[in-house]
Design a protein around this nucleic acid. Structure first.
Lengths: 355, 355
DNA sequence: GTGAAAGCGCTAACAG
DNA sequence: CTGTTAGCGCTTTCAC
């Protein structure tokens, strides 16, 4: 039975294996690297070493191995993306792909990179030990933080380059969505598409980013039509919950000719509800979403989206991180991203140019 | 200007900084760890060290740092998922989430884990140095390999636990889709849903997995209806290319009442084409896809999918990897996964039970 | 066939 | 305020 409890309190090393098996550390090393043949170690010894290693629950220390074996090698940059379980999957992949592509370009015979993903539960960033120790990463990108995480970061000051996505925190570089831009664009797309009475659809619990989107939308509608704009509040961000909320609003007699859904899932829910209520998109009701996900083009009619800044934020964050790593930038920097609007079928109630 | 060329051929160490700045290595270490105050190093010295470090293009060696500073710490497992740029984003995220959740459960005060993502270009796995060196990872999961990668792995023999997803390669553990199962399930869903003349839609270049799906589908149709089944071949896997292929087949007079699309993107393309051809789903033409992605529920009518084994494969692969890491399994193991079928609106032409 | 010894790059403890 | 020293866990000569 492997010893997974570490009775001595510390991880097992090859010295302990060597002692228990009655051989030298060098022999253990050779066997565990499968070099027993070229090192001419007897099969009996090899077997004894392997058995002992398993008995002791040996786990090789990669830091030790690398330090020793990769001599004269390339310099290594170890990078990470910290993200939450709760973040939309495509966002994580987006950041990852962008980062990996940048790394591919930079990699050469004397510079290597590795990218890790560290996932945390929203609000519990403090529990990730790898973040504060400066012995793991040369630089990181952090996404999807909650207020609790922001506070933690503000007082902790991570001792290596960090790029915050979508949050401004004192002392850190960040890439931000231009304030109010998503809501304003959404209002323009709906009003420009011919809506006169749009509503906004969001979930019950509302993040800082979503709050900004909603407020800017309401202001945008007010500015263009002079009308106040109602919110339909869904229990959660799931598309079915969104659908239920919209359907209930409709059957309760709420009149509207446009919906701004603050996430794409909610937009998909709106489609579902409107179909059940026999409202046609965009003739009866136009819909605009936020394009953080990939579903916009698969809906019918295709969903008009404000791009959400995720994609563009990742595209800005990665080069910024590299400049910090190379020491070209010293203090924190802020980059503001203006997300593009993709006008598709769902918002064009009239032939009017949807600006 | 930072020295990024490593003239000496090797990465810069703190000793070189110390020499150039005329201080001791310990002082350099302290300054670079931002401990200058508690170590009472003069601001002048600190500044000199920092400037020198930047001039020399110093990049800290994390292996060295960790080896020294995390003494008596937990044992570390370094895991990785090797995947391609070409793999669908949700698949990567799926594997990542599954792995991270498993890791969360296993993590405790004396065992820590890290998960890295290593991306390669399909067919070029051989170019990833981290794979063969046994000084980086304790175990890895590899997805989306091409034949060239498979050959490479077969002759290379990675010296630590590896789980292959969707491929059987001598000497490696793997998690496989049950052969023929996806195609057979698709045929059952379409025929059971009332189709009599289904076709299969796939891309021009066809992987081993897709080949298996297509062949099994053709056999399944033949077995149930006695009819041979035509293939519509799309230029690529993009939904628009799929749509173009289906539309052309339709306008050329091909008659069919069901489509098995080998990926969900192609299924979305089929929806697009059928809409343009004024064919209703499922009344005129039923559609079945492979649910590797998340769009199935967002299409209208919701797309019936054979789950593709990706999700279930990840769920099997991670525990298998952990058992290998703990030494509970010695030789290679094979796990066969039978993917579930999600019957939704798109395949039910009749009220017949869609088995 | 096997062991002893050196040292990878770094930091912590201690000595000035 | 700063330098010297020891050693983290491992692999690789080289000597036996």
């Amino acid at each position: 039975m492997p010893n997974n409890d570490i009775p001595g309190g510390r991880p097992v090393t090859i010295y302990e294996i060597a002692k228990k098996a009655g051989v030298s550390p060098a022999a253990v090393s050779s066997v565990l690297a499968n070099r027993e043949i070229e090192r001419r170690i007897s099969p009996v010894t090899a077997q004894k070493v392997r058995v002992t290693a398993r008995e002791l629950g040996y786990v090789p220390n990669m830091a030790g191995r690398r330090l020793r074996s990769r001599q004269g090698g390339a310099r290594q940059y170890d990078l990470a993306i910290f993200t939450t379980f709760e973040a939309p999957l495509p966002l994580v992949s987006q950041a990852l792909h962008t980062m990996q592509r940048a790394v591919d370009v930079q990699t050469n015979k004397d510079t290597a990179y590795s990218i890790a993903i560290e996932m945390y539960h929203a609000g519990s960033l403090r529990l990730k030990p790898a973040l504060l120790h400066s012995d793991r990463y040369h630089g990181v990108i952090i996404t999807n933080t909650q207020p609790a995480d922001d506070e933690f970061l503000a007082q902790a000051q991570v001792p290596y380059p960090v790029i915050m996505l979508g949050r401004r925190i004192p002392g850190y570089s960040c890439v931000l969505e231009a304030p109010g831009i998503v809501g304003r664009h959404a209002a323009e797309a709906l009003i420009g598409g011919g809506c006169r009475k749009p509503v906004v659809l969001h979930g019950r619990s509302i993040s800082q980013t979503v709050r900004d989107r909603v407020d800017a939308f309401v202001r945008g509608v007010k500015g263009r039509t002079g009308l106040d704009c109602v919110a339909i509040v869904s229990g959660g961000l799931d598309s079915h919950q969104g659908a239920a909320a919209v359907e209930m609003a409709f059957t309760n007699g709420l009149k509207f000719d446009g919906i701004f859904a603050v996430t794409d899932s909610l937009a998909a829910g709106a489609y579902e509800a409107l179909r059940r209520c026999e409202q046609r998109i965009p003739r009866d009701v136009a819909v605009v979403g936020v394009g953080d996900q990939e579903i916009a083009e698969f809906l019918y009619p295709a969903l008009t989206t404000v791009a959400g800044a995720n994609e563009s934020m990742a595209a800005e964050a990665v080069p910024l991180l590299f400049r910090m790593l190379r020491g070209e930038i010293d203090g924190p920097r802020e980059v503001v991203v203006v997300p593009p609007v993709y006008v598709r079928g769902s918002s064009m109630r009239t032939a009017a140019a949807p600006r």
